[in-house]
Design a binder for these strands. Structure first.
Length: 673
RNA sequence: GGGCCCAUAGCUCAGUUGGAUAGAGCGUCGGACUACGAAUCCGAAGGCCGUAGGUUCGAAUCCUACUGGGCCCGCCA
């Protein structure tokens, strides 16, 4: 690609400097940046400034002037005896500022790059940095105990897009969802289902059990209405003759089949369907329960034991975080029995720690059985403190049951066994405290874990925070949001911001289907390109231009000749921007930052709109000159291609036209005028 | 008390991994449609990049200490 070729030219010149004793021997790489200002050329190189110390050492100068080195480099770039090629590639090279090399390329070099896009088509933007290494991205992994809400949506979109980015950067990516279908909370769902089933049997006069005895819903059971749907489905799944007996049977005797039915139903009818609306598909749905059933936990523990990172320890109760509440009120506050009101967020604790607790809800019902854990007995722990964790983490409880951590260790052990070299997990920020212990475990097992933490989503409604609570059943589901805003806008909205920024999700704005939603700007850009290409055929010049392009298809020399008509600075700058796309994708993949693609899209389209408007009355794309028209239509079709690729990468549709459902609601116009 | 994240225009956010005069959208004000899509474009106003030090040719970016906000700190899941 062109940038590498230019870097090569500088590097050859640097080696010439070495030969001439201006630099100590070494393998110098030239870094090229695209300057912010067009006046600074197509590429800027800071090699002279970076290497000035070496220059000073080689020339025995007390201090060196980067400009002097810059001039030496430039002389060797221009010297045909050093290299012949640059004269074709470079139009100019100048020294500016403290010692920047500003490079400008020949028009033909940029024009030729368009052929690169055309030949790669839908694949333009892909690179092979990952070299096909197996990578797993695990994300969402919401507990199968209820519908997903907007916070899950952020994790889902982020994870899915990061996976796409890694794919585009050359990794062999698998998307995986870890189903927490074991543990206490799923039995809470199971019990809720049984209770709701007894209610539904009576109310709806379900065949076979219209006179069922009521079963009380516990306070800690899931309260949402969706539980009724699960309950109804469960009842109807039973043979009519067995329904009454099932409702009469004690919960303890059937909690396992209830658990199984409920979690599977929630997953397939609530979670999987919502993700499909987002166009998110997982390669693997991995059940935690299977780990327990197959003795995977013991196997993973043995793997850790072999690494010598296990120990038997008596764990002290953690020092109470806020026993030393020395904040303020140090002096002269009333020391009556009345406690000063707490300032800030009381750390009440959240039920369902997981990506589903997107908002800490102070109204949640929590039982803290603080005195419950009998201390003083030695437990099998992993020495996670060796890896920077705050304390060692137990793998088994006093009761002998494996901890959640143990199951997760087993899960990641399994991932490694399946040959994944690189593990990426996408978690909500409320999992921050979990990162170091999980990384420690994976590292001990010989793998590498990278964790993407995304900050939480605050739902805003009417400018006010809109609290939600899973158990209180007043939450806004992801599906509601999707149905109101549509998958394109919702995806785009989540991807606009860096993951480590907390976002206020404005429900009212998301529901509004109007042009102030930035996704329309981007899609319009693509549709405009599509429209222009379509419309061109209607004019005689345009039709002939298209015919020429068609005739030259596959003939590189002929195309290059046509493209020589692209000489406006804006046209070459557009090409320049298009050619950065593969780098942008690779950089976004490396940093796990999909928002870079969003900004790339917006900036590229803005550049195109600006070009279009500026020459609207003079140098039109389809104008009088058949040659120019052909070249410009070719440019437009490559712009369209890159926009399409970027939108596709983000999972946002790239429409050919936008006129479908435009809404003109200017109803607040002239109301009281 | 400790750990992680954040702080940039009135608001919401970018800032190419340390580069040249810090940008965009929304909002405000003023302009541009007899022809390729005005869901667009052009211009203006708007900044002590939270504060104070440090590192170097050069800092919004890296280091330290503060200030303010978010998340977290169980043998729970």
């Amino acid at each position: 690609m062109i940038k590498e070729n230019v870097a090569k030219v500088i590097e050859v010149a640097l080696q010439a400097c070495v030969r001439d004793g201006l630099l100590p021997a070494g393998d110098y790489k030239a870094q090229l940046d695209a300057p912010k200002q067009a006046a600074h050329g197509d590429f800027a190189c800071n090699a002279a400034m970076v290497l000035q110390k070496q220059h000073a050492a080689a020339t025995n100068a007390a201090k060196s002037n980067p400009r002097a080195l810059a001039e030496a480099i430039v002389a060797r770039v221009r010297d045909p005896a050093v290299q012949a090629d640059p004269q074709k590639l470079l139009a100019s090279i100048e020294i500016a500022g403290p010692g920047f090399l500003n490079l400008r390329l020949a028009h033909s070099a940029w024009q030729g790059e368009l052929l690169e896009i055309a030949s790669q088509g839908k694949r333009f933007g892909r690179t092979n940095r990952g070299q096909g290494a197996k990578t797993m991205v695990e994300f969402v992994s919401a507990n199968p105990t209820g519908p997903m809400h907007v916070g899950h949506g952020r994790g889902a979109v982020l994870g899915d897009t990061v996976a796409s980015l890694l794919d585009w950067a050359g990794w062999s990516v698998s998307r995986e969802y870890y189903i927490n279908d074991a543990g206490a909370q799923v039995f809470r769902l199971a019990h809720a289902v049984l209770a709701r089933a007894s209610e539904i049997a009576r109310v709806e006069r379900i065949e076979g059990c219209p006179d069922a005895q009521p079963i009380a819903l516990d306070a800690e059971d899931y309260q949402g209405d969706y539980v009724k749907d699960v309950a109804r489905a469960w009842l109807l799944s039973l043979p009519v003759s067995e329904r009454a007996a099932a409702l009469a049977r004690p919960f303890e005797e059937q909690k396992e089949p209830l658990r199984k039915f409920s979690t599977e139903w929630v997953r397939t009818h609530l979670i999987e369907t919502d993700l499909q609306l987002f166009n998110i598909k997982f390669d693997v749905w991995f059940s935690e329960k299977t780990l327990h059933d197959q003795g995977a936990i013991e196997a993973a523990v043995e793997a850790l034991r072999a690494q010598g990172v296990l120990a038997e320890e008596i764990l002290e109760k953690p020092a109470d975080a806020k026993k030393a509440e020395k904040t303020a009120k140090a002096t002269a506050t009333h020391e009556s029995g009345a406690k000063a009101p707490m300032v800030g967020t009381p750390n009440i604790g959240t039920p369902n720690i997981g990506t589903q607790s997107i908002l800490a809800t102070s109204e949640s019902v929590v039982q803290h059985d603080d005195e419950d854990a009998p201390l003083g007995k030695p437990l099998l722990v992993m020495k996670t403190t060796r890896f920077g964790d705050d304390r060692d983490r137990p793998l088994f409880k006093t009761s002998g049951e494996p901890t959640y951590f143990a199951a997760d260790v087993a899960y990641h052990w399994d991932k490694l066994q399946r040959g994944y070299k690189r593990l990426v997990n996408v978690w909500g920020a409320d999992h921050g405290g979990y990162v170091s212990r999980m990384k420690a475990a994976v590292q001990s097992m010989g793998g590498e874990l990278e964790v993407i933490l995304f900050q939480l989503v605050n739902l805003m409604k009417d400018g006010q925070p809109f609290k939600m609570s899973k158990r209180a059943a007043n939450f806004v589901t992801l599906r509601e949001l999707l149905e109101e805003a549509g998958p394109d806008a919702t995806r785009f909205f989540f991807l606009q911001r860096r993951g480590d920024m907390a976002v206020d999700f404005d429900l009212d704005l998301a529901k509004k289907r109007s042009s102030d939603n930035p996704v329309f700007y981007v899609q319009y850009g693509h549709a405009r390109c599509a429209g222009m290409l379509l419309k061109a055929a209607e004019s005689p010049v345009g039709a002939r231009a298209l015919a020429r392009l068609e005739a030259a298809r596959g003939d590189e020399a002929a195309l290059r000749t046509l493209l020589a008509a692209l000489t406006l600075p804006e046209e070459l700058q557009i090409v320049q921007r298009l050619m950065t796309f593969p780098d942008v994708v690779a950089g976004a993949a490396e940093a796990f930052e999909p928002h870079r693609i969003v900004f790339y899209l917006q900036e590229t389209i803005a550049q195109f709109h600006s070009y279009y408007s500026k020459y609207k009355k003079t140098e039109r794309v389809v104008g009088d000159d058949e040659n120019k028209s052909a070249a410009r239509l070719f440019l437009v079709s490559q712009v369209k291609q890159v926009l399409f690729n970027a939108l596709t990468l983000l999972g946002v549709s790239a429409p050919e036209r936008m006129d479908a459902d435009r809404e003109e609601d200017e109803r607040d116009e002239g109301a009281t005028a």
